[in-house]
Every structure is written in C-alpha cells, then in structure tokens.
Computed example of a mutant assay.
Amino acid sequence: MSELVTGEAVALELRPAKLPSRALAVLLDLAVAVIAYIVLTIGVVAATASLDEAAQTALSIAMFVLLLVGGPIAVETLSHGRSLGKLACGLRVVRDDGGPIRFRHALVRGLIGVIEILMTLGVVAVIASLVSARGRRLGDVFAGTLVVRERVPLTRTGFVPPPPPWLAGRFSGLDLSAVPDGLWLAIRQYLTRMQQLDPQVGWSMAERLATDLAARTGAPAPQGVPPAAYLAAVLQERQAREARRAFGNGPTAGAVPAGAGAAGGASPVGGVNPVSGVGAETGAPGVYGPPAVSPAAAPPLPAPQDAVRPAPAAPAAQDESSAERPTTGFVPPA
C-alpha cells in the first residue's frame, strides 16, 4: 500500500502495480501493436507495389513509428492511462498525486519506453522497476506517473459520510457536466479523510474545494450551508444520477424528501443544527460543522424562544384513561 498526497493535502491509499502484472500488460500491448503493424504492412505493400523500394521503406518506418510509438501514446491519452493490456490486468497509469494523466505524461512515457522497452528488450525497464520502491520505470520517473492497481477489495474503500437529510434533493437541477474527474476524486478523498484532519485545515480545504466546484457548476453553495455538507450533497447527487443511468429512473435508495426532519421546528436526525452543524443538546460540533471554538472565545448564545415562552395552562379536568393514553401529536376530534 502506498500513500500519495494530492494538491489538497489528502492522502490516497493506492496499490502500486507489481512487476509481473506490468510485464504481462506490456506484452499484451506489444502483441496487439505487432499484429496491427503486420496487417497494415501487408495492406500497404499490396497497395503500393508500383512504388520503388525507397518509398516502401519510408512507409514501413512511418507505420512502425505510428503504431509502436504513437499508438500507445494516443491510447493512454484518450483512455486516461488504461491501455488494452492494462485494462485486461486491472492496471492504470496515474499522476503522482493520484489524478488522471494527460498528453504530456503519455508522451514522455512513450518516448522513453522506446529506449528502455523496445531497444533494450525491456532489460532497462525491469532493472528500474526492481530498484524503485514503487516499481516505477524510467518513463514513470521522468513523466511523474505511477502504475497502480484498480481492482482492490471493497473493504479498502473509504466511507463517504452522507449529507444531512435537509439537503436531500437540494441540487437535483445542478449541471455537473463541466466538473472534471480530478475534482470529483479530490472531493471524495477529502470527505473520506476529513475526520482525520485538523479542524481548521479541514475547513479551509473544504472551502477551497467548494469554491472550485461552484466555479465549475455555476451555482455557489447556498447561504448558511457548511462547505463540507455542500460537497457531500453534490457528490451524492452525482452518485444518484449515475445509479439512475445504470439501473433506470427508479427512486434512489435512502433519499429523504426535502424538509423532512424540520417539521414542527425540530432539528434533523441526531439533533444537529442544519446551519452550523452543532448538536442542539450537547453543543458538540457535527460532522459537517465549522471548527470547534473555545468557550472563552465563543459568543453568548441567545436564549431559545421555547425557554421563555410561558407553559400552557393545564386542563380543568382530564380522564384517567386519556392521561395514560400516549400522545400522538394530533388533536382528537371534538
């Protein structure tokens, strides 16, 4: 297990790929590339039989560079680090911070791979992988990438706390198409680790992520909603849309109607204030609440209206059977 630290100071637990699985993925990629090269060469030679030998040699070299060098670069760029061999072995190329790779990363890996894999028959790549602590070859070192395993046990996945019930369905009309995968990854990793961070650092990190998310969606967080709760609610909305897209348009499991838990002036489940995230009875900070403030620096809280409201007068007479009957909250008919 290897811990990578993102730009938001969130540690990611990723499993670097071992040498046997990486070698098998490279062999599968090379086999596909060689087969495509042979088929294309036969077709080009048959189509250019009237050309001279120099032209045919130039075409052969161009096809070699296109398929064995440009092919892997294009595939890794378009698939964000998953070639055919890596897809079959459950591997993926990511950046050092855990994000998806781009064209420049794939270009550096492909160009150096020509030297350490094709020209030396993989000897240099094997030696570099054995020496590296995380199994990286020279192309990974210069490109700032890492090959990791995607197929990990479900028990390794961090738990993302659900948003408060009063935010359910609040962002159902939000446009999430412009949010990149890297930002979703950072939000999810922050939510799984926010309980392990310092309160002040976690709060500022949530504000930065909420600002980036609001800039991508075009809708800022509602007034009074903690940034961590805003991130959790938007992430849950994205997961609900993915579930509806995969399994149909049925109701999402665990969805709570908007406003549920606030009827009658009561706070949501657990007695947590929906604005500040602070427990109503204990005063302890909630999951998505602001950083804890020392009692000396905390401003005095106003007395709740229920505490100063006079108690209603007791009824003049009451039947014993009705006194023992449990209260339902509804007024019986006259």
Rank of each mutant, 00 (worst) to 15 (best):
V287P: 10
D175R: 06
R216H: 14
K86I: 03
R137I: 02
Y190N: 04
V287D: 12
V124N: 02
M194N: 06
G85F: 05
V32N: 00
Y288S: 12
G7Y: 15
P20W: 13
R208S: 13
R238F: 06
P333M: 07
A296T: 12
V256C: 07
P274G: 01
A106T: 09
Q305H: 03
G271P: 12
I38Q: 05
R92T: 11
R245A: 09
D97H: 01
A260E: 13
A262K: 13
I42R: 04
P162F: 01
A292I: 06
S21L: 13
E116I: 15
G271R: 15
A243R: 11
P227M: 14
A240Y: 03
A178K: 14
V256K: 01
E76Q: 09
P227E: 08
S60T: 12
E281K: 03
I115Q: 00
V293G: 02
L121M: 15
R193W: 03
A334I: 09
G279H: 15
L235Q: 07
T192S: 10
G264F: 11
N249L: 12
A323M: 13
G329N: 01
A232G: 14
R82M: 08
L213F: 15
T157H: 08
P100V: 09
V234A: 03
A233V: 04
D306S: 13
D140M: 03
V308T: 14
V34A: 09
V65A: 10
P153Q: 07
V308D: 03
M194C: 06
P16A: 05
A260F: 13
P332D: 04
D29N: 10
E8K: 09
V256W: 11
P163S: 12
T77W: 13
S276E: 14
R156K: 07
D306G: 08
E8G: 04
S177Y: 04
Q196G: 12
A74R: 08
P161R: 00
A33F: 00
T155D: 10
A210C: 02
W166N: 15
L107K: 00
A233Q: 03
L154R: 10
L84P: 04
M194G: 00
A314D: 11
L183G: 06
A280Q: 14
I35N: 01
G99K: 06
A62G: 14
G279E: 15
D319M: 05
T157N: 03
A74M: 15
P161N: 03
G271T: 11
S79G: 05
